[in-house]
């Protein structure tokens, strides 16, 4: 192996600084959330306690954060399932290069880059003018999909661009119907990538703020609740909440990554029996 150049160490140092920049602030509030009961929003630590975490569990202190958490969790699951199903269907559709696919593609890109406040404002206006009640599970749900679906679609593009068509052809040659090919060949092959789509669907919804702002109605999702707290809470309780919800996100991410990893390993272990002499 050739020796590391000097450039490598400079870049490695830069990369390390970048990681500190990315994670440092979050770690800081992680530490500060264990502030003593008399402690403030910055260092020094005034003792160490779980006082502020306890505070979170006394509902009257900080509003309805557990209700908000439940709503965000439910909404995240709804958005996740919808994103996976709709993205896969759209991904399959785009492979067929149907007439009008370019228009739909540019629409999806628009959905991704449009300033979020337009979605928030527009959906809110439509619901108001039509006399519908805005609610996180209807208007909020739809508004969030405009953010998660383009990501799901882009991942599907990346997946199908690398997809080896000869598997499908082999299935067809052996007499599989279109549905059988999809069910027994295509879906199992792309399954690990669907974990990725699901991860995007859930986490982007769980943390979404701008598009939910005017579309959630009278019951806040967690990010909205947290944002409300920033204006009137001046104790480390907000750090405790931040730490808790970040930890929750990390657990979710960890679970998704673990599942994807296990699926990949199973595939490399069981994927091919070529040359092994089995029947």
């Amino acid at each position: 192996m050739e020796r590391r150049s000097k450039g490598f160490y400079v870049l490695a140092a830069f990369f390390t600084l970048f990681l500190i920049f990315l994670y440092g602030p979050t770690l800081t509030i992680g530490i500060l959330s264990f502030q003593g009961p008399q402690g403030g929003l910055t260092f020094p630590m005034n003792g160490v306690s779980v006082h502020w975490f306890k505070d979170l569990f006394q509902e009257q202190a900080v509003g309805d954060i557990w209700g908000a958490f439940r709503r965000s969790f439910a909404l995240g699951l709804m958005v996740m399932v919808t994103t996976v199903v709709v993205s896969v269907m759209a991904g399959l559709a785009f492979r067929k290069r149907f007439a009008g696919s370019a228009v739909l593609f540019y629409l999806a890109i628009t959905s991704l880059v449009i300033p979020s406040i337009l979605i928030s404002l527009g959906v809110g206006l439509i619901f108001n003018q039509l006399g519908f009640k805005i609610h996180w599970a209807t208007s909020g749900f739809g508004a969030q999909l405009t953010w998660t679906l383009p990501f799901g679609l882009l991942i599907m593009f990346a997946v199908f661009n690398r997809f080896d068509k000869s598997y499908e052809e082999a299935a067809r040659d052996q007499g599989a119907t279109a549905w059988q090919t999809l069910r027994h060949v295509v879906l199992p092959i792309i399954a690990p990538s669907l974990i990725g789509v699901a991860l995007f669907g859930f986490t982007l919804s769980y943390d979404e703020f701008a598009r939910t702002l005017l579309t959630a109605g009278s019951y806040n999702t967690l990010p909205l609740e947290i944002f409300g707290m920033t204006t009137n809470v001046t104790t480390p309780v907000i750090y405790a909440l931040g730490t808790l919800t970040t930890a929750f996100s990390l657990v979710i991410i960890g679970v998704f990554l673990l599942v994807a990893w296990v699926m990949n390993r199973r595939r490399t272990r069981l994927g091919s029996d070529a040359g092994k002499g089995g029947i």
Binding site: A90, F94, R97, L104, L118, I119, L121, L125, T146
Partner: peptide, 28 residues
Amino acid sequence: NRHILGWLEAIPLTAVLLCFLVAPIVMI
């Protein structure tokens, strides 16, 4: 056949984008 199948599979995405992207922009 290919176009029709493609359209059918693209319906959900199209519906979401029409209701929650195009319609809001028009409304604005």
